[in-house]
Every structure is written in structure tokens, then in C-alpha cells.
Design a protein around this nucleic acid. Structure first.
Lengths: 194, 194
DNA sequence: TGGTACGTGTACCATATGGTACGGTTAGTC
DNA sequence: GACTAACCGTACCATATGGTACACGTACCA
């Protein structure tokens, strides 16, 4: 009998967890069923069995990473107040591997590889609306909130890339604080509307 | 006889060009010697011959992409004046594939894969100094120039990622312009020194 | 007790990969 | 013309991969 819909089970969760752990350390790009299985002392046959195929596992891993990222970057953390603590939250050392994997999947999705459908929409568009709302609440001109939300996401991801590359927590924190100070100037000035 | 140092030649350039073209379209992560060779009607044996190994070719491709990126982002384009035209230059449609490949190698390097040594230093640290100089010339406070340079690079790359993901040229352009307007406010206000 | 569905391991297959052995071709040089 | 070295193609090899066939065990239920 062919398994079309994979059921959830404890064993499946264990396999998925191992796959994510493996991806966090070694990347997802050359994800190998045998390596993952070996890391928890089972056979790659199990991964095929529980996820249908390699791509099935890849989809599950992508979804899981996406879920963790969204869980971590709750809208609460997007408030523009207390920038230092917010950046510390975003850039916490224990989350480096997760962030790196996130960007890896991001690029993966840019290349249109199977298993990443919908990832980019969630990663970009899915964040603009909530950030925009937070900005408006913080007193930002509505006409500029959309652009500033986009800008804020870009700054966050750009600086996270910088941090991943250099490990310079002080420099990136300083840059992030500068950005928030710039934002504070917005409420005191008109930016002109394009 | 073993070729330790590969000489430059017309044939080698042709192979490298084909490899870069292939990477621009299909990515560099699962770079296949056979596919590249096939795309110009030769055998993968030639790539091994001219580049020593798969990794040798990968190094050459990375270097070439790095060179193109630096050639394109000359410091001239980093001036903060005429933001609209600068962004149009950065985000020119014909350069999307190149930018995507750049990010791909960036992630590649974050995972510490062979062939990407030195790439991150060039991609981040190598740009901060020139941008910083441009900012100082433009009248930015010296104490803030370093952080703003870092911020500017982050904004540029973050928005390029956004653009690659969404294709929304209008939205990203608007966000970029907002950023330059924020910068203009800097020269009129103290930012506080951390 | 017999049967059925699920879960797991072993062995295997077809394929694709990087790399090598070897032979052939061309161009330059004595 | 003969030798040499660079250049290139064909055939091959060892390996790793995703996927499949099949056998075995367990749990549940009639």
C-alpha cells in the first residue's frame, strides 16, 4: 500500500528533529538522508518511510524552520522602543545557526527549488503588515509606514547577515541603534511623499 | 606530468565563463562539472584539466563573481546624492541573477565551505571603509560614519534580498529613498554617541 | 488463533558524480 | 621528419545518493 498522507507520530517527530539539527549544523543544501539517519542511529529507509521522499523531508524541515523563525520573531519583539534589548533578542548567539539556516533556505527559495514554495512570501510580505502596524502605533506617519516597515525588515536582515559574517556584535548593535535613532527623527519631520 | 599551477588560456576563460553562466542560472551549490561541460559541448574532463578539480573551478567561479560585484559596485555608486539613480543602478534587472548568485555564495561562505575563503571579509569589511569615507565627505559626523556605513550596507543588501524575493521594484525603491531621507536628517541633528 | 496494518532493518538497484587512465591530435622546435 | 608538450575526448572506476523489494516483528482485533 502506498502512503500518500504521512501520519504524525513520535518517531516522525524524532526524525524531523534530527533533520533540523543536522541542517542547522551542516546546511540544508546537500541534505543527505543517510547522514541524517546515521546521526540518530537509524537507516535512511525510515526517512523515506515517514516523509515519502527526500523532498517530503525537505518540505517538513523548511516548514519547521519557518515556524521557529516566526515563533521567535513575534510581533512583540518588533516594537521600536528599547532598541538595544530588541536587537539583543534578535541577535542572540544561540540563534545564529537558525538564522543562518533561514538565509540558506531563503536563497534556496530564490532559486525556485522544490520544497520552498511559499517561503519567500511568508519571509517578506508576511512580515510587512505587522511591522507596519507597530510603526503606526508608534506614531509614524501612515503614508510612510509601509516603506519604513520594508526598510526595517531590510535593516534587520542586512545587519543579521553582517553579524553572521563578522561576528561583530558591538558594531552591528551600534548600527541598529543608529537606525532606531533615525526613526525617532521621523516623527519630528515630514519625509515627503513619493 | 601533474599540473600544479593552472595556466591562463583562452580555453580556460571560455570554460570559466560557461561555469559562471551556469551558476547564474542554476546556482552554484550543486555545481556539476558534467552539466557545465555539456552546456558548451565539451567533456567534464576539460574542467578537471584546466582547474585541477571541482573545488578549483569553484574557487575560480567565486573569485569571478566577487570581481564582477566589486566592478559593478564601484565606490562612485556609493555616493549618497541622487539616491534614486543609485538604487536603479544597484537594482538593475539585468543584475538580478548576479546578485542572487552573490547571496548564494555568501551563504555558502557562512557555512564555511571550501572555495569561499576570504569571501565574507571582502563582502563586508572590505566595503565599510570606502562607504565610510563617502559618508564623511558628504558631511556625516565622523563618530557616526562607521555605524552608518554598516547600516547603509545592511540596508542595501536587505532591500536587494527583498527585491529578489518580491520583484517589487517600486516598493523597494521607495524604502531606499526613505533611508536616504533619514540620512539627510542626520546632518541636522546629533545622534548621540554610544 | 489468524489476520491485518504499522514500523523497522537489510540488501539491493539505477543513477549521477568527481576523478583517472590512456590514447589521439595539434603545434612548435631541433 | 622526429620529438615534445600542451590539449582534448572516450572509457572507465569507486563512491554516494535516493528509492525499492522484501522479510521480520509487534500490536491490535475479530
Amino acid at each position: 500500500m502506498v502512503r500518500l498522507v504521512v501520519a504524525s507520530s513520535q518517531a516522525r517527530d524524532r526524525l524531523l528533529h534530527a533533520a533540523v539539527e543536522h541542517a542547522l549544523e551542516h546546511g540544508i543544501l546537500d541534505l543527505s538522508l543517510r547522514e541524517i539517519a546515521e546521526s540518530i542511529g537509524t537507516s535512511h529507509r525510515m526517512l523515506i518511510y515517514h516523509f515519502g521522499s527526500r523532498e517530503g523531508l525537505l518540505v517538513a524541515v523548511v516548514r519547521e524552520v519557518d515556524r521557529r523563525e516566526r515563533e521567535r520573531l513575534g510581533t512583540a519583539s518588533l516594537s521600536i522602543v528599547d532598541a538595544r534589548r530588541r536587537w539583543d533578542h534578535l541577535a542572540h548567539p544561540s540563534l545564529r545557526a537558525q538564522e543562518r539556516l533561514f538565509f540558506e533556505i531563503y536563497v534556496h527559495a530564490l532559486l525556485g527549488r522544490p520544497g520552498t514554495e511559499g517561503f519567500l512570501d511568508e519571509a517578506v510580505e508576511g512580515w510587512i503588515a505587522p511591522v507596519r502596524a507597530v510603526l503606526v502605533d508608534a506614531g509614524i506617519d501612515e503614508d510612510n509606514a509601509e516603506g519604513l516597515a520594508r526598510l526595517g525588515l531590510a535593516v534587520t536582515r542586512g545587519l543579521l547577515l553582517d553579524l553572521l559574517a563578522t561576528g561583530d556584535i558591538a558594531g552591528t548593535t551600534r548600527a541598529f541603534e543608529l537606525f532606531t535613532q533615525l526613526l525617532e527623527l521621523v516623527s519630528e519631520h515630514d519625509l515627503g511623499h513619493v
